[in-house]
Nucleic acid binder design. Structure first.
Lengths: 266, 266
DNA sequence: TTTCAAAGTGTATTTTTTACACTAAGTTTG
DNA sequence: CAAACTTAGTGTAAAAAATACACTTTGAAA
């Protein structure tokens, strides 16, 4: 009964004529996207989190961290929605996002904190929302993040220290890390987390960190070089308090040529 | 403008009080699921397709084939929705369905044929619908399929002869087959397509068919047996016009014990 | 000049993957 | 009832890949 009322009667009508409503009309009340953006600082795997705040500057006490995400617009593709929302909240653009999956537990929005926030922000706070998870890998240094929209504050959080997030975002994050491990095992994507020129040690550290394993250093180096996807440059590390390592780059072209079917990356 | 009208005004209200409306009220207009059910007849990989017909027996000329799917109900989990819808349309129940991903192109419902059908069947035919794809493997012989709901007719179609389906269902099917290949490579799931007792030749044929490859027969046999997941029985094929093959069974228990991480199944 | 920290390098062993061809057993056909 | 047909069933050798493992080098900092 309550749900019907919200669809049909006064409340909706008023909303749809208000300024908020004007925004919300184009917005699909039932579908959102959430983005898991991974970064790497040389030692730790990081995730980009948002401290949410209300639109219109109404200020509720709420320091809950969430993944950057929002409702989709009715005529935009899911992938576009993910890009748009990430750009709006964090300023990150032109980034490759890949779908992780759909998350649609009926009680995924039912924590009290989350409900308060929805009540304050959404035109139809009670609506069933399923969300599509996306994930991306970026080189932290290449992107300047700046909070916007309802993102009060942005934070690169160590993956291992992430605590309880809003909504079902821990679950989404968890699926994303599994996907990341899976892809890292099979495709040369570790590079995306590193500067264009990187040392093999950086790459090695990254693999160890993400795979949560201790790979043999010499074998790792051999295998990586054997793939042919990374080429040495003439440059070396500078300003390090030890023997400077040679820097390498990833050669996309080589990878394109390989049959991607049974390819194992390490 | 048109969209707002559909949300707010008379049409919706009338609908919500009609019998159709009563069903639709609980239904979420923006989210559906579609199921790719694979079977195997001993030679060919099959997909279960539905020839759609209107609810309420209004009969529009439409022989378009689609995947079994429908809108979700507002308070049910996505997985439950997939089970329910598959059961309602085909009678198949207690089946393991796994998510393939979300499909949300804004024009995924825009073919003319599809629009006609939506207009006739849906309360909000113009609504943006994103769909969540699921896939499942079953042993054809174990399930009696019977059309119900808007399924006028059900059909086990050879995977290779599938032509243009309604909506974006070719795309969903395509993602599902990729997922199937990927899983078949890594997990012992081929058994699900076979009777409880099967010959190694049946399994071999299945792998060849799905992987679209020619695997070495002897090596295949050796590797399968080495996994320890399949155990020989005392039974043999009967009524075959050649030397009868020994039958084997899949032993789930053995698989549970193995670290599933880097496991390669063949 | 010594110490520290990471860079860089090769080999032997084991394991896994691949390629490959004949005999066995039951059914059907002439 | 013998021959032909069809699939079942079996082993080995060679190649490739994965693993385990320890010392020297280089530059900066103390």
């Amino acid at each position: 009964m309550k749900k019907i009322a919200n669809f049909t009667t006064q409340k909706w009508k008023i909303m749809s004529e208000s300024i908020k409503g004007k925004y919300e009309i184009r917005t699909n009340p039932n579908v959102s996207v959430d983005c898991v953006v991974f970064g790497f600082d040389g030692t730790e795997l990081k995730v980009l989190l948002v401290q949410r705040v209300l639109r219109d500057n109404l200020d509720i006490e709420d320091d809950t961290l969430v993944l950057p995400g929002d409702l989709i617009i009715d005529d935009e593709d899911l992938d576009e929605a993910a890009s748009r929302i990430l750009r709006r909240l964090t300023g990150i653009k032109n980034i490759f996002l890949e779908q992780v999956g759909a998350f649609g537990s009926p009680d995924r929005l039912s924590k009290e904190r989350d409900r308060e926030w929805l009540e304050a922000v959404r035109v139809r706070p009670e609506a069933r929302v399923i969300t599509i998870g996306y994930f991306a890998l970026i080189n932290i240094q290449n992107y300047k993040i700046r909070p916007a929209g309802f993102a009060k504050h942005l934070e690169w959080r160590d993956y291992h220290t992430v605590e309880e997030l809003g909504f079902d975002h821990n679950e989404i994050l968890n699926c994303a890390i599994l996907k990341l491990r899976d892809k890292l095992y099979r495709e040369p994507i570790g590079f995306k987390l590193l500067p264009a020129k990187f040392s093999l040690h950086q790459l090695y550290t990254l693999y160890n960190e993400i795979m949560d394993a201790e790979i043999d250093r010499r074998n790792f180096r051999r295998r990586m070089l054997k793939t042919g996807f990374i080429k040495e440059t003439d440059e070396y590390q500078e300003g390090v308090p030890h023997k400077p390592a040679r820097l390498y780059t990833f050669v996309q072209k080589e990878f394109e040529n390989v049959s991607k079917n049974n390819f194992k990356f390490y």
